[in-house]
Structure formats: C-alpha cells, structure tokens
Design a protein around this nucleic acid. Structure first.
Lengths: 356, 356
DNA sequence: TTACCATCCGAAACCGGTTTCGGTTGATTT
DNA sequence: AAATCAACCGAAACCGGTTTCGGATGGTAA
C-alpha cells in the first residue's frame, strides 16, 4: 500500500519545482506566491507527504522533543502519578508538535547518566523532572549542561530554575487547622525522609499550624519512614504504640496514608472514627480505600500542562526564574477525617483486648 | 561550564585525524588500527564527546526510538498499568540504547493520526500498543504503514502480527474453578464492552468453566459495563438486584472489581464473606482495597520487557508471526474470595437493618 | 628489483530536510 | 527607453554524523 514514503525530492519532482521552493512553500514563507503555496500543499496532501522529523531536527537544530525521567524510587502504587503527569505534558507538547521521550533509570547514578546522554546527544531539547531532593544532583547536572528544564516540585534553594509546585506548607496548615476544628489536639505527622524537599515543606506547614493553634509540640508525634505504603504503616504503628497516641495523623502522600489506614485497622480501630487520617495527592484510588481517604488534592494533569508550557517558553528563550508557580491544594473530604471521639480511649482498650 | 558540545570535527581536529576515521574508530571498524582506535576513544572520553543522535539517526536510517501510544479511554485508576509497562519497555530498549517516545491522543481518531504522524515522519522505528479492540483500526493502519509493531493483547484475528498476551481464557477458567471449589454455583461475570477482545477471551473462559463444572448457564449472570470502577459498581448493583443474585463475581479487570466491592459494601454486604469477588491484573493497590482484592496477577513489567525484545527482533527483520507469546496468570489470593456463606441471606438482612 | 597484498587512513557522497543568497522575471518609476 | 524594484523561484550550503571507495604506505613473495 504505502511503499516508500514520499520525500521532499519526489514531491518536488511531481510539482516541477525545486526542493527548496517546496520546503518554503510548506513552511509558508513570504517569498512564495500564494498560488504555488496552495498547489504545493494540496499535492503534498494528495501524495501523503510528511517531512522526515529526523532530517528536520538536524536542520533546524532542535529535536522538538522533551524528556521525562521516571521518578526514582517510584513505588508502584504512586505511579498513577506518572501517567497523569505524562497526559498533561503530552497535551502541552502536542500543541506545538513536540513529543515526549521517557527515560528509565535503574539507580540514582544511572539516572544522572541518562540525563547526560539525553541532553548531550541532543536527543531532547528540554527536560522535566519530578520529586527533587533538597539538594538534587540532577539539577546541578542540568545547570552544568545548560539544558532548559523545569522541575515538578522544589529543592531547598529554588531561586535559579523553573518549577511548578503545590504549596505543601499551606496544604498542611489547612489539614491541621481542619483537624483542630474537629476537636483534635494530638496530631501526628507521617513523612518521607527529609532529603525530599516536599517532606520538609509539609513538615514546616505542620509545625506552623501546631504552633498557631497553640498545640503542644511533641517530637514523638513526628515519624519519618520510607516513601511507600509500607513506610506509612510502620510509622503509624509506632505512633499508635506511644503512651499517649495521636488521635489524628497527617501523611505526606496518599501512598503513606494508605499504609496508615492499614496500621490503624490492624489494631482494630476505625480510621476516621477512632483515628483521623488526611493524605496528600488526591489520587483517585483513595475513593476505594477502607474507608475512603480524605486528602489534599492537586490536579496532576494540570501540573503536566503547566510544566510543558513553561518548558516550551524557556526553550524559546524565557528566563527560567520567571517561571515559578505555586498552586494551592484543595481539601478533599472523604471519610477518614472525623470529630475527636469522646471515648477514643475506651474504644482503643476494648479493641485491644479483643485482639489479644 | 560546558559551552558548545564537542562535535565530531573538533574531536577529529584534536586528534589530527579525519572525521571519517574518527567515526569508524568509535564504531570499532576493522580497518582502524587498534592503536588509533584506543587513542580516539580515550580522547573522546576526555573531551566528553557524544555523537549527536539526530545526525546519527538520519545517517543510519533509523531513529533508534520506539513509540508507545497511551491506551485509549484510560481511566485514571488503571494507569499504574501504564507506568509499569513503560518501566519494562524502557529496560528492554536501554539494552540497545534505544528510547521510548510516548504519544498522547485525545480521541480514537486522533490516536490514528498520532500513529500516522509518528511512523510516517520517521520519528519512531516501531510501535507498541495496548488493549486492542476485536477489530482494531490501529492495527490495520500499522499494517498499511508497514511499520514494525507489537501488541499488548490480541485482536479477534491475531495471526498476522506480533503480540504478547496473558491467557485470559485460562485465567478465568482458573478463577471460576477456584470459586466452584469454594462451594459457589451462582457465579457472575462482570465485563467491559465486547469490542475489547480481552473481554471476549475472558468471557469465553468463564463460559467454558461454567459448563465444565456443570453449572446452570444463566445470561442474567453476565453484565457488561464501562471499563472503569464506576462501570464495575453499576454492573454489580444490577447483579445484586437479581431475584436470585450471584454469590460470587469474576471481574474482567481490577478496576471493575474495585467497583464491584463498592457496590457490595453499599448493600451492607461483606465482599469475600457474603459475595466473593475475583479481579484481574494483580495491581498493587489491590492490597489496600476493602477488603484486599483477590485477583489474577500478571507481571506487567515483564510484559513490557518481552514486548520490547520482540519489537527489536522484528525491527531487525524477524517475522512478526514468530513472536506470539501467551503467558499464564496466577491466582493471587487475598481476601475477597471465600467459601459460600451458609447463611448469606440472614447476614444480608441484619446488615441492612444496621445501616438504616 | 618488481609485483603483490594487507593495513590503515583521507576524501567525498549521503541521509532529508531548512535556509541563505543571488538571479530572473515583469511591472513601475523617471 | 533605461533604471528601479518587488515578487518569485533555483542553486547550493548546511546540520553532524555514517559509510563507501580509493590511495598511500610498508612488508612480503616471486
């Protein structure tokens, strides 16, 4: 059916024009008469001509492609994250007929190598990365490479590059305030390692809200564990073993919150009744947890679109530091936030007996 | 720091050699003396030379890139699916320094346009696609384009192309047999529209097992709905409204099974106790559903790797029809499969009272 | 010594587009 | 009628690699 794809020269031959003229006609140059321009485009359509992207890229000096490096330590639960972000990124890119290349890395070191390869080989004209660490070597590398990039999230020092982030500090203030409004006073924080800047941001928000609400600051109420459902479960278990356990827990991500729910149920307690839990991410899957998870929602596809637009602008020459956007998360109430139980202690004891 | 990336000619100048010689040295041609070959490679490393991929692609005639079109109608819950597959694909590709391009489409028609663009512009040298329909226009298009491709799943007529699939028929026979072993006899099937071939396959398995176990065939026990959690919930609701409702349900995907769980709980019944449910996919988040979902598991990252290897082999000239692999799914027992409750009816009533 | 051959490298074509530059038309100005 | 100019198109360089082909060199066989 198709045989060989028609190239510019056979198209030019059909039209009895030179390849240069045909190329300029297709790209709507001003020095081509409207008549021939239309004729060229019509015949190009008829013959099913399509410019070879590789040749075009080589000629114009940009691959018209951006890269996305799959986030490190990506636990499988949180990966809906990736798909949604890619969706938004793809939308933004397709506006200008750019494409998205995804790179896979099997270690942090390999991740740097992949970035280096993608950029230095000219395979991508820009990069998007997720979940930066406080002091992220990837960002230092990208700076050295002088490659346009945008970050989904922020590092500790976030002055000199472009980023899009959700205001984790604000979100956790909202979370804690909400729980205080429900009567809670012993509120715990379950977080990932502090090398992730987002944990630090959210912890800051937690601390601020604790103070502004006049709650007692208790370091024991803060637990750090792996960024995964298992991590959340372990951290929560330790919290519940406290002499004076929390009555509410804010978790740094939905995946950790899901682990928290498991830990609570494992003790025969009811999330949202005996212990409240608020997650962070707004993953759709939270609708189906036991019980449905209250969370701080951030629209990921929108983040992808914004990141894509920002990156294109920077590639066009914009100053990266002009593109720093902070979005507010929304409290999405489902069923794991509830008023402070009057008899939480009693329930706790009875349930424990039941288990032993 | 980096300035302009060093190209082949500045490298050649440094070495006092011609670009052709340097290129052949780097690619280990036999007509280059071992001495200069080593020297070239050493200096190339020192100068941080990296071949421009675009130029290389144009020259050798392949982009060294494959494409993956994000599956249509992708509901956000099932998208962990995408990330895992991409992971596997990326691994397979990185073995040969190929890359993966993901394309996004916002309608079935646009999806065809994207495939057409990717292939005819030479942006990809091969394509992977998921979830084919019974008679899929994308496959017809790819055949016409004469572009190497592999399919994750099968169509109705799957003779003339390469695919990797999990044996859905076998899996559903396993599911139903397992439920029969638990004492169930009224077993329902909840599926997506039959235009998805995988629904047909799994329905075939269901039907076969129903007959082989001597169960009564009842068309009412088969419900088709949207491929989503909501679809699963609606279908299950209708089943539970039957005069003689099923005591067990097999669902065509985990996302639909999750909806089924919701429908069962909404009636105050307990999944795994009053009504058993078995899903399909083995997604990790099934651990955290209420209760944890029993399912037929298929290792998606492995599928991605196999698909990648197959595609590379076909690009190298292999006959696509030589690459057709069927994998068996494993029953992953969690907590939604249980023995037939002797007093299901009574439990049902009491729970309802409790709720009202 | 001459002929022959293997080894090694340079020169140049090539991949398929884009873009600059210059030249040829025909119409307009003086 | 000669000069000027705008409109339009062809020729060729170029992007940065890969690959083919032929030539120079030095060593070995006749």
């Amino acid at each position: 059916m198709s045989g060989k794809p028609v190239g510019l020269k056979v198209l030019a031959a059909h039209l009895d024009l030179s390849v240069g003229t045909v190329s300029r006609a297709l790209n709507s140059y001003a020095d081509i008469s409207p008549a021939t321009r239309e004729r060229v485009k019509r015949v190009a359509d008829e013959l099913g001509y399509r410019a070879n992207q590789t040749a075009r890229s080589l000629s114009i000096g940009t691959p018209e492609t951006i890269g996305y490096v799959l986030p490190r330590y990506s636990n499988s639960i949180a990966q809906t994250f990736v798909a949604q972000l890619l969706q938004g990124l793809g939308e933004a890119m397709s506006m200008r007929n750019w494409d998205v290349l995804v790179a896979h890395a099997d270690s942090p070191k390999d991740e740097l190598a992949q970035i280096d390869r993608l950029v230095r080989s000219g395979r991508v004209g820009g990069l998007v990365m997720s979940r930066p660490l406080k002091n992220d070597p990837r960002i230092r590398l990208l700076h050295g490479l002088e490659c346009p990039f945008v970050v989904h999230g922020r590092t500790e020092a976030s002055d000199d590059y472009a980023w899009f982030d959700v205001d984790g500090e604000d979100a956790f203030i909202t979370s804690v305030d909400h729980l205080v409004g429900l009567g809670h006073s012993r509120i715990s924080f379950v977080g990932a390692p502090l090398q992730y800047q987002f944990t630090q941001d959210r912890l800051n928000g937690y601390n601020k809200a604790v103070k502004s609400n006049g709650l007692p600051v208790d370091p024991d109420l803060i637990q750090i564990a792996d960024l995964s459902d298992d991590g959340g479960e372990i951290a929560t278990s330790m919290l519940l073993d406290l002499p004076e356990p929390p009555t509410a827990i804010v978790c740094v991500t939905d995946s950790m919150a899901i682990g928290a729910l498991a830990a609570i149920r494992a003790r025969g307690m009811r999330p949202g009744k005996d212990v409240s839990v608020i997650g962070y991410d707004g993953l759709k899957f939270g609708v189906h947890t036991n019980p449905p998870l209250t969370t701080m929602a951030q629209p990921l596809a929108h983040a992808g679109r914004r990141l894509g637009d920002m990156l294109l602008a920077i590639i066009d020459g914009d100053d990266p530091t002009k593109h720093q956007e902070l979005q507010r998360a929304q409290l999405l109430r489902r069923e794991t936030d509830g008023p402070l139980g009057r008899v939480a202690g009693l329930i706790n004891v009875s349930k424990r007996e039941e288990i032993q």
